[in-house]
């Protein structure tokens, strides 16, 4: 992925502040363009998974990769109804442990969009080292809330 436009005051940043779990994780928008998103997660004690080393929990990566991938689903070409998205699946490869006391960066890019589905890949890294600590692929259903009877909606990743 090439350089992404640094943006911090986009309407999507405002949106992020209103997703309770994204706010609880401390997610901050760092870059945005239609079809791509970059988020920073400042290191915080409550994200730790291994108190012996201070390394953040893999579940934090799961939550952030899911959320940023959803943010990378292009909005400009979609109708209002299509913009309601649901995560169908998410697969994550954990390549190396994150270094403790360093911010996490997660960048996602939508690489294919059909009428019903968005395909998104993402990678997580840290500011001091560009090598990926984790990468993921996810698929999202577009227009997820339309005609979905109660209890039949798919998982809500980031819509």
């Amino acid at each position: 992925m090439g350089d992404i436009t640094p943006v911090t005051d986009h309407s999507i940043a405002e949106h992020l502040r209103h997703v309770p779990h994204a706010a609880a994780l401390g997610m901050q928008l760092a870059g945005y363009e239609d079809g791509r998103a970059l988020v920073r997660v400042p290191y915080a004690e409550h994200l730790v998974g291994d108190p012996d080393t201070g390394v953040i929990h893999g579940g934090v990566l799961t939550a952030v990769l899911d959320n940023v991938s959803g943010m990378a689903v292009p909005r400009a070409s979609l109708s209002e109804a299509q913009r309601a998205i649901a995560t169908l699946d998410l697969r994550i490869d954990y390549m190396r442990p994150a270094k403790p006391h360093e911010d996490l960066m997660v960048e996602a890019e939508c690489y294919q969009l059909t009428r019903a589905i968005a395909f998104v890949r993402a990678r997580a890294y840290q500011a001091s080292d560009d090598r990926a600590i984790a990468s993921s692929v996810a698929t999202f259903m577009l227009g997820a809330n339309r005609a979905a009877p109660p209890g039949f909606g798919a998982g809500e990743g980031a819509s």
């Binding site: 779990h21 799961t62 939550a63 998982g155 809500e156 980031a158």
Partner: peptide
């Protein structure tokens, strides 16, 4: 704090994954 979608409302998919 586990909510991902305040409109539905629905849990954040990431919390379920975690």
């Amino acid at each position: 704090s586990l909510i991902g979608n305040v409109m539905l409302p629905a849990l954040h998919g990431g919390t379920i994954g975690a």
